[in-house]
Lab assay of single mutants.
Amino acid sequence: RELEAFAERFKQRRIKLGVTQADVGAALANLKIPGVGSLSQSTICRFESLTLSHNNMIALKPVLQAWLEEAE
């Protein structure tokens, strides 16, 4: 499924970029996305391991996609 594929791609790109899960969480606050502050390292970890609820995964995907586009 698309969500699982994105989570895997996100993790691979993050590692290639040399960015930690905690760095991603902190950097999200800098994107100034309305309603989104920083996220914890454990939230990023749970996203990558697909252990968040489906609704949370869907909500976080565009936020993490925005970070990925900014980071690349």
Rank of each mutant, 00 (worst) to 15 (best):
S53R: 06
P62L: 03
E2I: 02
V36Q: 06
K61M: 14
E70I: 04
A22R: 10
V24Q: 01
K11M: 09
A29Q: 15
L50F: 04
Q12W: 05
A22W: 05
I15G: 04
R1D: 04
T51R: 14
A71T: 11
A7K: 04
T43Q: 10
P62K: 08
N56R: 07
K16W: 07
A59S: 03
A27Y: 11
E70G: 10
A71K: 13
E69M: 12
P34M: 09
K11N: 01
T43W: 04
Q65T: 02
D23N: 10
V36N: 06
A66Q: 14
A7M: 01
N30E: 11
A5V: 12
E70F: 04
P34Y: 04
T43E: 06
L64W: 01
Q21T: 07
S49W: 00
A71H: 15
W67P: 02
K61P: 00
L50K: 13
S42I: 04
K16Q: 13
P34F: 03
I58F: 15
I58V: 15
R46H: 11
E4R: 14
L31A: 15
R13C: 06
N30R: 08
R9S: 13
V36L: 13
G25R: 07
K32W: 08
M57V: 06
R9W: 09
G25Y: 11
N56C: 12
R13Y: 09
L50A: 15
S49P: 00
A5T: 13
R46Q: 13
R14S: 00
A29M: 09
L50P: 00
A71E: 10
V63D: 02
F47S: 01
I15C: 07
L64N: 01
F6S: 05
E70W: 05
K11Q: 09
H54K: 14
F47Q: 01
S49C: 09
G35I: 02
T20R: 06
N56L: 15
F47R: 01
K32V: 13
R1L: 09
L64I: 04
Q21S: 05
G25F: 09
R13M: 10
R46F: 03
L68D: 01
S49T: 14
L3H: 05
R9D: 15
A5Q: 15
A7P: 02
L31T: 10
A26S: 13
K11L: 03
H54P: 15
E69Q: 10
E69P: 02
F10L: 02
T51C: 09
G18N: 07
G37T: 13
S49A: 14
A26T: 10
M57S: 08
A22Q: 07
A7S: 07
A29W: 08
I33K: 04
E72I: 05
G37V: 12
R14Q: 03
A26M: 10
C45S: 12
T43N: 01
A29R: 10
G25E: 12
L3K: 03
A7L: 02
G35H: 12
A27W: 07
R9Q: 15
L28N: 02
C45H: 14
G35M: 10
C45T: 14
S49D: 15
Q21I: 12
P34C: 09
Q12D: 14
R9G: 07
F6Y: 09
P62M: 03
G25W: 05
R13V: 13
G25L: 08
P34R: 04
F6G: 00
E69G: 07
R46N: 15
F6K: 00
V36F: 12
A26H: 12
E2N: 07
E4I: 15
E72Y: 03
L68P: 00
S40I: 02
D23M: 09
L31S: 10
V24N: 01
A22I: 03
A27S: 07
D23G: 06
E72S: 08
S53Y: 10
C45R: 05
A22V: 05
V36P: 04
L17Q: 00
E4M: 13
L39W: 02
L50D: 09
R13E: 11
L50R: 14
